[in-house]
């Protein structure tokens, strides 16, 4: 299934509201792009899916987020939350390999949760590295420090790493914003491959990227969902004036300030 459903989701940090009334359904095996200007709340929404925002003091979420029909925020004990997180891969804006070797980056999360031998873990790691097309580039230096890889390689390593656990849902927070066009292209290629078996929610600032890779797009604006739907439809016929301006790249900051959550 791999579906995610946001039902009347609101979120606040302390008494500062960042999201309200979000209703959104993410279909299985699709790439869903969340777009919108900085501070519109799309990242908060993304990080709520695996409850990573719990780490931030004062974070409150209202409404409910359903993953495969189960309410994420109804999970009471910590272990359930951890099980949830294991099933959801997360790619951060900045590549985040741990300060250790490439191979250990791959095996640490796997061996953390799966009873398995180091050999099995290694084999799976090699398979995942091949999947993201990194294997041929780094097969000679699997034990070299991961931070010596280029930014694009690091990000692909992180994607491969997130695939070590059986996760059918991937959360990506601007995965290509720190990368050059060629690296970005390679990652987009991977996304198409991954989509076959997984659902991907991707926050991006790159409108062109959203147009290229996503099946669906949701446009957020100051904490509210302005418009969502099939990407080609939305880019061709935006329903809302702001959407139209944003996707055409004509929305400037001064205009943004005038809009308020209604």
């Amino acid at each position: 299934m791999n579906t995610v459903e946001f039902q009347n989701v609101g979120a606040q940090y302390g008494d500062k509201a960042v999201l309200s009334g979000i209703e959104l359904e993410i279909p299985a095996n699709s790439i869903y792009a969340l777009i919108g200007p900085s501070g519109c709340g799309k990242t908060t929404l993304l990080r709520s899916v695996n409850r990573l925002n719990d780490l931030i003091r004062g974070f409150i979420l209202t409404g409910s987020i359903m993953v495969d029909g189960k309410s994420v925020y109804s999970l009471k004990d910590k272990e359930s939350v951890r099980i949830l997180r294991r099933g959801i891969g997360m790619i951060f804006q900045k590549p985040n390999p741990l300060p250790t070797s490439i191979m250990k980056n791959m095996t640490i999360p796997y061996l953390e949760h799966v009873r398995s031998s180091a050999k099995e873990a290694r084999e799976l790691a090699l398979e995942r590295l091949k999947l993201v097309g990194l294997y041929n580039e780094i097969k000679d230096r699997l034990d070299a420090p991961a931070i010596r890889l280029s930014g694009g390689q690091q990000q692909r390593l992180c994607i491969a790493r997130s695939l070590m656990l059986p996760s059918n849902l991937l959360l990506m927070d601007e995965p290509c914003s720190a990368l050059d066009p060629i690296s970005t292209y390679k990652i987009e290629e991977i996304l198409f491959e991954l989509k076959k078996e997984r659902t991907i929610i991707m926050v991006t600032h790159n409108i062109e990227q959203a147009r290229r890779v996503s099946d669906y797009t949701a446009f957020f604006y100051n904490g509210v969902l302005v418009e969502s739907g099939a990407t080609h439809n939305m880019f061709a016929h935006p329903q809302h004036d702001y959407t139209q301006k944003y996707v055409s790249g004509r929305m400037i900051e001064s205009v943004l300030q005038e809009v308020h959550i209604s």
């Binding site: 990573l52 939350v81 951890r82 294991r86 951060f92 741990l98 953390e112 949760h113």
Partner: peptide, 13 residues
């Protein structure tokens, strides 16, 4: 902080 988040995102205690 990202290292912490990485760990938690993997469901680590």
């Amino acid at each position: 902080d990202i290292y912490r988040e990485t760990g938690y995102a993997f469901g680590m205690t």
